[in-house]
Design a protein around this nucleic acid. Sequence first.
DNA 1: AATTACTTTCAGTAATATTTGAAAATACAA
DNA 2: TTGTATTTTCAAATATTACTGAAAGTAATT
Lengths: 168, 168
Amino acid sequence: MELTEARLRFIEAWGKLGSEWGINRTMAQVHALLLISPESLTTEEIMQELNISRGNANMTLRDLISWGLVDKQHRPGERKEYFFADKDAWNIARQVAQERKKRELDPIIKLLNELSEVEGSEKEPSYKVFKNTVKDINKLAKNVNKTLETMLNAEESWFWSSIFKMFK
Amino acid sequence: MELTEARLRFIEAWGKLGSEWGINRTMAQVHALLLISPESLTTEEIMQELNISRGNANMTLRDLISWGLVDKQHRPGERKEYFFADKDAWNIARQVAQERKKRELDPIIKLLNELSEVEGSEKEPSYKVFKNTVKDINKLAKNVNKTLETMLNAEESWFWSSIFKMFK
DNA sequence: AATTACTTTCAGTAATATTTGAAAATACAA
DNA sequence: TTGTATTTTCAAATATTACTGAAAGTAATT
């Protein structure tokens, strides 16, 4: 396959994957483009490459920065901003995990804790089922949480070698 | 908190969580409702409880069944179908992981393998960066894949106790 | 203080995803 | 085979989300 085609396919696939996981397609595509660009790019270049508007490019880049996936650069003597992405897959995974944990897992655990305190009688089946289900999900969520926390602090090599040892 | 309120909050939160992860809100809500219902429910009851149309309820239930999260029951002498969900959080997690792996991870790994074969010269920076990025993501994807496969076969207790040992 | 080079915002529009509801299909019972 | 209960389908309606483009904002330069 040619590089040009491969790049397009990569961008498309990354965009699709993003949208399947609740990340908007364009945002994932901009990220993909930066991931495979040797040099940092201007808003202008991103707009052209992906056929998106200035407003969209701007907002998307801002989002990517808030996710910690993209940074901007100033070049001396130039006024415009250049954007680039960390290309290390492990860092990307960690960053995404960290943000999603903060935005989604933490709030859900908080709620589950509250819901565990629900009042009612052990005689009511709907009470018993509710309590059990919530307790069980809560336990799982806390396990996931702990695992993520470890992963966030871990070095890639250490993390995967432990995984391998355990699953060999 | 009262049971009635707690149930509503749980359904709402589960729906929101689903939609943040690319699962449609109604589908997650129907699942939530079944998770906290001691008895299996009819389409009719689900429609009422969640204020959704017959068509929507029907399609959503079908989807949940295809995800392996819900099953139907026949009751002797009755014509209509009753739906219920497996309430074991570990099974749910496994089931979701399994489906997403099949639908999303497997295809992406296939593509990454193809993209690794891209032709070009080591002198071109854009070729080098592309190859490296793809290779790196591919490695990560394969690690995730292997971990998931193990998890899919694992018993909950075994899985988490290994995790604990390793992360203690 | 005016010009230039950019970035940001956001109301309006477009695109996508979800839901409805009624008709068609199915399946059981008499 | 006809009637009745139930499920399924899907075109159209609605809701949600994403995108555009032009105007307003910012900040460096002359």
